[in-house]
């Protein structure tokens, strides 16, 4: 009976992620618009956009190959899988042991690999410029991410997110400077990975922001819908990740009752709302960087994460 309940919660978790990802995107856009004293589109606009795109026909470039047509679905499901492996409202779900944090990050890497290839498939310079910048940013973000994982593993003794979350919500953690540094580094990596300001701007495809949007310029209709959905899922993934590692309160323990799940869900939605507002405030307060300033930005993340690790070594020898 317990196993069946676990599977049910797991299925619910998968559906929940799929359901609220566009909502988060819409929410962030709305808050940003309000901060800029615009009225902004309704919070539910991303759902309408997706529905509209899904109904439209696809216009393929003349020499688009099978890879171009398969990629959107692959990216969507890889990102969905990765997002579903991060604990949201409950830890220790039946399939949470499918991958640890390193594998989750690598799964996103697979999605990026195929997206970059799809960008190059049509053979225009837009796709190429987007793909080459995307892989550069990834090359800078991945080492930082690994060192962050290293810091977390050092503190929590695991890379399995459920275990990490359980440890972080226990009283053993205390207040550590390293954790703060890891948090800042993770936020920087998350901003870069999601192509948010100041690294990239998800709302335009002007030349200045030619990373993600340049790569998907040739996509239309249902394919574009899948890619947009995947971006929304990725944003949700990083929000959930930061939530489950650094503010794990309210996370339902494995096998907890319905009440705990309800509390976990409420806490999770609250965390997302706070995270969304913070992201919007940050984005409105800062200007877009030149592409070649991004290495400094991400280099700071790497240095912070390394410093966090070193500090941890120093404090452990008390």
């Amino acid at each position: 009976m317990n196993a069946a309940l676990g599977l049910l919660v797991q299925a619910l978790h998968l559906a929940l992620i799929l359901a609220i990802a566009p909502l988060l995107t819409g929410f962030v856009r709305k808050v940003r618009a309000r901060l800029l004293r615009r009225k902004g589109a309704p919070v539910l606009q991303p759902y309408r956009d997706l529905a509209r795109l899904l109904r439209k026909e696809v216009v393929l470039a003349e020499n688009a190959s099978w890879l171009f047509r398969v990629t959107p679905y692959l990216i969507f499901s890889a990102t969905w899988a990765a997002a579903a492996l991060v604990p949201t409202f409950a830890a220790g779900l039946p399939f949470s042991w499918l991958a640890d944090l390193i594998a989750i990050v690598a799964l996103l890497g697979s999605a990026r690999f195929f997206l970059a290839l799809a960008g190059m498939d049509v053979g225009t310079s837009f796709g190429g410029i987007g793909a080459s910048r995307e892989v550069m940013i990834a090359a800078l973000a991945e080492p930082a991410m690994l060192v962050i994982v290293f810091t977390l593993a050092l503190i929590a003794g695991a890379t399995q997110l459920s275990t990490v979350a359980a440890f972080m919500s226990s009283s053993e953690v205390g207040l550590r400077v390293s954790l703060g540094m890891a948090l800042i580094a993770l936020v920087i990596v998350a901003i870069a990975e999601n192509g948010r300001i100041p690294v990239d701007n998800p709302d335009t495809h002007l030349e200045l922001t030619m990373v993600h949007e340049a790569m998907v310029l040739e996509y239309s209709g249902r394919h574009l819908a899948m890619i947009e959905y995947a971006s929304a899922l990725k944003l949700l993934l990083y929000m959930s990740l930061i939530g489950c590692v650094f503010v794990p309160w309210g996370l339902a323990a494995p096998g907890a009752g319905l009440e705990a799940y309800a509390i976990g869900l409420a806490a999770y939605l609250g965390k997302l709302a706070v995270g969304g507002v913070l992201l919007a405030v940050f984005e409105t307060a800062i200007a877009k960087m030149r592409v070649f300033r991004v290495p400094d930005f991400l280099g700071a993340a790497l240095m912070l994460a390394l410093l966090g690790t070193l500090l941890l070594f120093v404090t452990r020898t008390r």
Binding site: K56, E57, V58, V59, A61, E62, N63, R69, T124, G221
Partner: peptide, 11 residues
């Protein structure tokens, strides 16, 4: 949703 696809020149 939709299954149509049309070929067109790249932008």
């Amino acid at each position: 949703a939709s299954r149509e696809a049309r070929r067109g020149p790249a932008w």
